[in-house]
């Protein structure tokens, strides 16, 4: 079977800092392959290791050196082909545009039996791209997989949603989105990393794929300060007194 995995170069939001005026310092923020995307790739490579998948193509949208780097990382993990869809400012693409690029690529170079994505990007975490790709391709969606298994042309996932656990099964082709709980992505060996450096990266563009894209119109983006009271109560020495203070405050708030 043939597997396509879409990965995003994401900001490591735990390391995001802001200017005094609230502007995010994005240039200074490290970027990595999305955590859940990496788990999606790991699932694909596991299928290859098990002899179930022959081809694992990894696609990313962007044109920077860092986009190249995550594709090389994907090779080091075991991808068989890497593709860069060249867009200068991929972060400004709308979710629908990203989905159109992925689905156009899948249609042009497919058919793929399985299309895997992370269940949400590490930074924007919209979780809508996978479902959109499924719709655009007209194939079943199995989303938020904490576990994935592929057997006899069918794929089954286990997904934890708000109201409980779901087991979804469908025939392939299908789109599956994978959470960061699904697995522990492998750490490539030095040998795999060195080998990956020589592997080719295919390039294409949204125009070549015939994907209609549009930019999302972001008017402003600033640090968000949650409107909280931030009253500190020191309980390092006198716990009794601190707890009394807390209970009194909660009574005054009318929440206990």
């Amino acid at each position: 079977m043939r597997v396509l995995v879409a990965v995003k170069l994401t900001y490591d939001i735990n390391q995001l800092k802001f200017e005094k005026d609230g502007t995010p310092l994005l240039d200074a923020c490290p970027r990595v392959m999305g955590e859940a995307d990496k788990c999606a790739l790991e699932e694909a490579v596991k299928l290859k290791d098990a002899g179930k998948a022959e081809e694992v193509t990894v696609l990313t949208i962007g044109s920077s050196k860092e986009h190249q780097r995550i594709l090389k990382d994907a090779y080091a993990m075991g991808a068989t082909k890497a593709v860069m869809v060249k867009v200068d400012d991929p972060d400004s693409l709308s979710a629908l545009s990203v989905a159109r690029i992925i689905s156009s690529y899948a249609e042009k170079t497919g058919p793929y039996d399985l299309i895997l994505l992370g269940s949400g990007a590490g930074d924007t975490h919209s979780s809508v791209v996978g479902p959109m790709v499924a719709s655009l391709l007209g194939v079943p969606l199995l989303a938020n997989a904490d576990r994935v298994s592929v057997e006899n042309g069918s794929v089954t996932i286990v997904s934890t949603l708000e109201d409980g656990q779901y087991k979804f099964t469908s025939k392939m082709p299908a789109v599956v989105t994978v959470t960061s709980e699904a697995n522990e992505p492998r750490i490539p060996t030095i040998r795999d990393i060195l080998r990956s450096k020589k592997k080719p990266i295919d390039e294409t563009t949204p125009e070549e794929l015939g994907a209609h894209v549009s930019k999302i119109n972001i008017e402003s983006i600033i640090k968000y300060e949650v409107p909280r009271k931030r009253v500190k109560i020191d309980a390092t020495d006198n716990v009794e007194e601190a707890v009394e203070k807390l209970i009194k405050a909660l009574e005054e708030e009318g929440v206990i």
């Binding site: 979710a95 979780s127 809508v128 959109m132 655009l136 708000e162």
Partner: peptide
């Protein structure tokens, strides 16, 4: 929610709507 995002993504993709979460 997880379910809301799923249905929003599927429906938007089919209709050609943008989806903002």
């Amino acid at each position: 929610t997880n379910k809301g995002r799923m249905i929003a993504g599927l429906t938007s993709g089919a209709l050609g709507f943008e989806a903002i979460t």
